Simulated assay, not measured.
Amino acid sequence: MSHLDDEKIALIAMGEPAGSDADMEHLVECENCAAEVAAMSRVALVARSSVVEGDLESPPADVWSRIHGELGLTSAVAADPASDVHPPESESESESASAPAASAPVSAAGPAAATEADAAEAAAPRHRARVRPRRRSSATMWILAASMALVVAIGAGVWIARTLTPSSAVIASAELAAFPDHPDAEGQARIDDDGDGRRTLTVTLDGDELVAGDYREVWLIREDGQALISLGVLDESSGTFRVPDSVDLDEYRLVDISFEPVDGDPAHSGDSIVRGELDFA
């Protein structure tokens, strides 16, 4: 059974109208050709779905040299396909260039010489068929080059995103001192800014014992003690809470962690465990 050539497999995989009805029937019957088309189709799909709209830039010359070395290709395809792309020659042109001329006269040496010439001519197609699977068509090379360029572009995009993304910074901290009813408790607090104005409060608390039926709540309290804001419930020994954008931390500088009974009252219970003032130095 003769298989589809590399050029035709690559074009079919890219959705080009290159296959005849006979080729399509062959793909249904031949598992090897169907598997090659499926593999190349996945590569083409990833490349198309990952590239933004606009003109594609040619990959650097060293990309092709790395592909060439990785695949162990021959020196016949060492040149970068992006710098010199020629349309593939037709099957008839290939055969006419490689096959001996049909009009060549028979040697005067007689039947023996003619027999040797016929044998050489018959061997030539078999030689082409033997080396053909190792040849890579220009379309196949373009898919490989595009895949390598895509990997490079994705890697560069990740590096740029990491480089340009603002890093989080600690802008304030506080040591949280224990109240007399909780002498063994101690805590710390810090305010982080992610670089885009979003702030978070992270607290840690050690040395307290949670009483059954109670929970711990984290608060920001104004310096004069006349207003406070609940940030949430502290379930573990540490927790991180979003500070609302409207909160002025120059006013709400006190961080408080309290025991709260499950009584449906959202107000502060008055049973503070630890408290401390944020230092913005």
Rank of each mutant, 00 (worst) to 15 (best):
L45W: 04
L45R: 10
L45Q: 13
L45P: 00
R48P: 00
S49A: 12
S49N: 10
V51I: 09
V51Q: 11
V52H: 13
V52Y: 07
V52N: 13
E53C: 07
E53F: 08
D55P: 00
D55N: 02
L56M: 04
E57D: 12
S58Q: 13
S58T: 14
P59M: 06
P59W: 01
P60D: 15
P60Y: 07
D62P: 02
V63G: 01
R66C: 07
I67T: 08
G69L: 08
G69E: 11
L71W: 06
L73F: 09
A76M: 07
V77F: 03
V77Y: 01
A78M: 11
A78R: 13
P81D: 05
S83R: 10
D84V: 04
V85H: 09
V85R: 14
V85K: 09
H86Q: 13
P87Q: 11
E89W: 10
E91K: 01
E91N: 03
S92C: 02
E93L: 10
E93Q: 15
S94V: 12
S94G: 07
S94L: 14
S96C: 13
A97E: 07
S98K: 07
S98T: 14
A99F: 15
P100W: 12
A101K: 08
A102N: 04
S107V: 09
A109G: 12
G110S: 00
A112Y: 08
A114V: 12
T115H: 12
E116Q: 14
D118V: 12
D118E: 11
A119E: 10
A119G: 03
E121A: 14
A122I: 06
A123S: 03
R128E: 14
R128H: 10
A129R: 09
V131C: 04
R132D: 08
R132I: 00
R134S: 12
R135K: 09
S138V: 13
A139H: 09
T140A: 12
W142K: 03
I143S: 10
L144N: 01
L144S: 03
L144R: 05
A145G: 15
S147C: 04
S147R: 12
M148A: 15
A153C: 02
A153Q: 06
I154D: 05
I154C: 07
I154S: 05
G155Y: 03
G155F: 07
G155N: 13
G155T: 13
A156W: 00
A156T: 03
G157H: 11
G157K: 10
T163W: 10
L164A: 09
L164G: 02
L164H: 03
P166V: 03
S167A: 14
S167P: 06
S168Y: 02
A169T: 15
A169E: 15
I171P: 06
I171Q: 05
I171M: 11
A172L: 02
A172S: 03
S173I: 00
S173A: 10
S173E: 08
S173V: 01
S173G: 02
L176K: 00
A177G: 05
A177P: 00
A178S: 11
F179G: 04
F179Y: 06
P180V: 12
D181R: 13
P183C: 05
A185E: 05
A185C: 04
G187H: 02
G187R: 00
G187E: 00
Q188S: 04
A189D: 02
R190M: 10
R190A: 04
R190L: 15
